[in-house]
């Protein structure tokens, strides 16, 4: 039997989206994936596909036109997922806050788990942030399997899920694994 959560810990796939940043943080993310900082030693790979990614790295203060794309990408990613905001302007708007086409930070639109400060965020910070996000991802994976633990196996009654039967079993498995 596959134990996906065990493998996910060592092969985190990230999705990177630039929501109006100055490129400074983006090239630092590229530098992280390069050989000197080598984020790949933790199994981290940059993949462009939201449907296969576990972590969303967002840079930039979120411009008017890119806000829909940010939400779209976030919703396309499967659970469990972690959002990391890279750079000062992603956290609060930074130097761009108050400009007419800027939405002042990504956490207005999607929930953010890790904030990485700095203009531009240094590779060391980015590595720290990604690893912090990895811890959160493990935690979230555990939370997701909780209901399954609670009910163990779904019981069926004439091809329908037997809700009453399940409700009767709540708490039965407490303490056991």
């Amino acid at each position: 039997m596959f134990k996906l959560k065990n493998f996910r810990k060592r092969s985190l796939w990230i999705l990177h989206y630039n929501a109006g940043s100055c490129n400074g943080c983006d090239i630092e993310i590229l530098a992280c994936l390069g050989p000197t900082y080598d984020l790949e030693r933790f199994g981290v790979l940059n993949r462009g596909n939201p449907k296969q990614s576990d972590m969303l790295l967002i840079t930039g203060p979120v411009t008017y036109r890119s806000r829909e794309r940010v939400v779209e990408l976030f919703t396309q990613m499967p659970e469990p997922k972690v959002v990391v905001a890279v750079g000062s302007c992603t956290c609060t708007g930074g130097v761009f806050s108050g400009m007419y086409n800027v939405e002042d930070g990504v956490d207005k639109y999607i929930p953010v788990d890790v904030y990485i400060p700095g203009c531009a965020a240094t590779p060391e910070y980015i590595i720290d942030g990604v690893l912090k996000g990895l811890e959160l991802l493990e935690h979230k994976s555990k939370e997701i399997v909780k209901p399954k633990k609670l009910f163990k196996k779904l019981s069926f009654h004439k091809d329908h899920i037997d809700r009453r039967g399940i409700a009767g079993k709540v708490g039965e498995n407490d303490g056991k694994d």
């Binding site: 630039n18 109006g20 940043s21 411009t63 794309r69 761009f96 400009m99 800027v102």
Partner: peptide, 15 residues
């Protein structure tokens, strides 16, 4: 090309 438009020109001459 307008995804990154932030309005720097306007801010530089007002803010």
């Amino acid at each position: 090309v307008g995804f990154v438009h932030r309005g720097v020109e306007h801010a530089c001459s007002s803010k």
